[in-house]
């Protein structure tokens, strides 16, 4: 019997992610920068991941494909599309069934998700039409410091006395941070203040869905260690790390959905 592969493709606002799983677990994954056309991003990210799997030559060799992310409905060759909220919940649950609460910080929005016992969504909340606290916000902030995102995160961890950054709006926060730098404040303290402000915003979102341990962070910003530290401080509990790159969680959840849907068709 030929081995079956299932794929999930998460078309976000800044990157395209693809994950291929089989009946045992994760086989391969890929993350690429977004193209202008969401469908092209999907095609490229899937091509990239398919290259890594011997026995797969093109997208049609995959038994079932589920699309997710903001560009999900543009992936014409996907058999199904599922919201990124459900996919992040299922992806995190697949990695660790003890996860009950998720903060998904993507490129253009932040979501708080409460997860059911079976990995489905119990409750969710999203930020409103605003880039504050998203990947784009961090990109803008690190640009002011002339740092890469990783370095921005690292310097925030060195702060001994974080400053208060009050502006929530990305544009106003930029102005405030430039003023703080002009006043010769330590970049580390300003960066830590930014992390704390975003953590507080995430905390507010989580309060709306209910905070139940274990808590994890997904999305590209989950790689920002400074933010995780600030969030742990405000939550007063540890963030559970995931066994898989947290940026892949939407694509992974989509792949798990693909496997489930393929199985239901076989029944």
């Amino acid at each position: 019997m030929t081995k079956k592969y299932y794929a999930g493709c998460d078309i976000g606002s800044t990157t395209g992610k693809a994950v291929i799983i089989d009946d045992e677990g994760i086989v391969a994954s890929a993350i690429i920068p977004r193209e202008i056309d969401p469908e092209e991003t999907a095609r490229l990210s899937l091509s990239r991941v398919i290259e890594k799997v011997s026995g797969l030559d093109n997208i049609s060799d995959v038994a079932y494909l589920v699309g997710t992310g903001y560009g999900r409905s543009e992936i014409s060759f996907a058999q199904e599309n599922v919201s990124e909220i459900s996919c992040h919940a299922l992806g995190a649950f697949f990695c660790n069934p003890a996860i009950k609460t998720i903060v998904d910080i993507g490129g253009q929005d932040v979501k708080g998700i409460a997860v059911n016992e079976d990995g489905s969504v119990l409750e969710f909340a999203m930020n409103d039409k605003c880039a504050a606290g998203t990947g784009r916000f961090f990109e803008a902030m690190s640009r002011i410091f002339r740092l890469e995102l990783d370095d921005f995160s690292e310097i925030s961890l060195k702060s001994k006395s974080p400053l208060s950054v009050t502006a929530q709006c990305s544009v106003f926060a930029e102005t405030e941070v430039i003023s703080l730098l002009a006043q010769k404040n330590l970049p580390a303290d300003i960066a830590a203040g930014i992390q704390a402000a975003v953590a507080k915003r995430c905390f507010t979102l989580l309060k709306r869905v209910g905070i139940r341990p274990e808590v994890t962070v997904t999305g590209g910003c989950a790689k920002n260690r400074g933010l995780l530290k600030a969030l742990e401080g405000i939550l007063k509990e540890e963030i559970t790390p995931l066994s898989v790159d947290p940026q892949l969680m939407g694509a992974l959840g989509a792949a798990v959905y693909a496997r489930r849907l393929a199985a239901s068709l076989r029944v």
Partner: peptide
């Protein structure tokens, strides 16, 4: 406006 976010919310609600 903000149709993308509205669609995501409604789809996730249906899925939940």
């Amino acid at each position: 406006g903000g149709e993308g976010q509205l669609r995501t919310r409604v789809q996730a609600f249906i899925e939940s």
